[in-house]
Design a protein around this nucleic acid. Structure first.
Length: 243
DNA sequence: TCATTAACTGAGG
DNA sequence: CCTCAGTTAATGA
């Protein structure tokens, strides 16, 4: 994939929540990006690592996760093309979690030095990254509420609703189904339940004709029941550019 | 390897 | 007593 196409993914992402001038766009296109291909289920960036670059997802799906000593893992967020899940490494010098690929991924690495220069050169762009980071925190707050307070079926529906919305705004939604490339085991790690229970929950939602989940793809069967169960309000995604 | 299901168990309302 | 969810184990795709 050409570097130009990769920076385009970032621009599309930043456009969701911020206005971008032509000058901004040109600046982002000049960023040097080193492209690397990763297989599925591989650490892009590891907990404890000292980073010298940030990682832009150009293709594929990633997750943030943290392992605890008993061997269990909590999935903290799901990431889609155009996102920079380890943007915090620019200012937080040691990673406090893993960034893993879910699927085979094309990752674009941008050096911290290049990003710092860009921040100094163009305060508007620095502001955009600020906003992006704050939205990320808002999404994590939402994730905590989901895992901590909702019933298991509602947790699943909520994560589905958020992912669907995020895929929608980058034009990756077709009809009533969308990519959600997690195994049931991974899904259980995202929802804080066992894999067996994740299976039970999926079966229940399928039987109730609310959603289906098969081979990494989610299908909405009953929009009204789905949204009611998911309790999803996209406000926390802050998708509209400031007016 | 991943998904499915049953059977059992206990917590908690 | 009912629902939810973890454990174990067997089995299918």
């Amino acid at each position: 994939m050409a570097s130009e196409a990769i920076s385009a993914a970032l621009i599309r992402r930043l456009r969701i929540s911020s206005g971008l001038s032509d000058a901004d766009i040109n600046e982002i296109h000049t960023l040097p990006i080193l492209v690397r291909e990763y297989p599925a289920e591989r650490a892009g960036v590891r907990d404890g690592e000292r980073c010298t670059e940030c990682c832009l997802i150009a293709g594929g799906f990633c997750i943030r996760s943290k392992n605890i000593p008993d061997g269990n893992r909590q999935i903290l967020s799901i990431h889609i093309p155009g996102e920079v899940p380890d943007l915090m490494s620019l200012f937080l010098h040691v990673m406090d979690h893993d960034l893993m690929t879910l699927t085979p991924c094309t990752l674009g690495f941008i050096s911290h030095e290049a990003l710092r220069q860009l921040h100094r050169r163009r305060p508007d762009i620095a502001e955009m990254f600020w906003r992006d980071t704050l939205i990320d925190a808002a999404m994590l707050r939402d994730w905590i509420v989901n895992v901590g307070q909702r019933s298991a079926p509602a947790r699943l529906a909520h994560v589905m609703a958020e992912l669907r919305q995020r895929l929608k705004v980058v034009g990756r939604l077709n009809e009533n189904s969308f990519e959600m490339p997690l195994t049931q085991e991974q899904l259980s790690e995202a929802l804080g339940i066992t894999a067996v229970h994740a299976n039970r929950v999926i079966r229940q939602l399928r039987e109730d004709a609310i959603v289906d989940f098969q081979r990494g793809r989610a299908t909405i069967l009953n929009e009204r029941k789905f949204m009611e169960l998911a309790d999803f309000d996209n406000r926390y995604l802050h998708e509209s550019p400031a007016l």
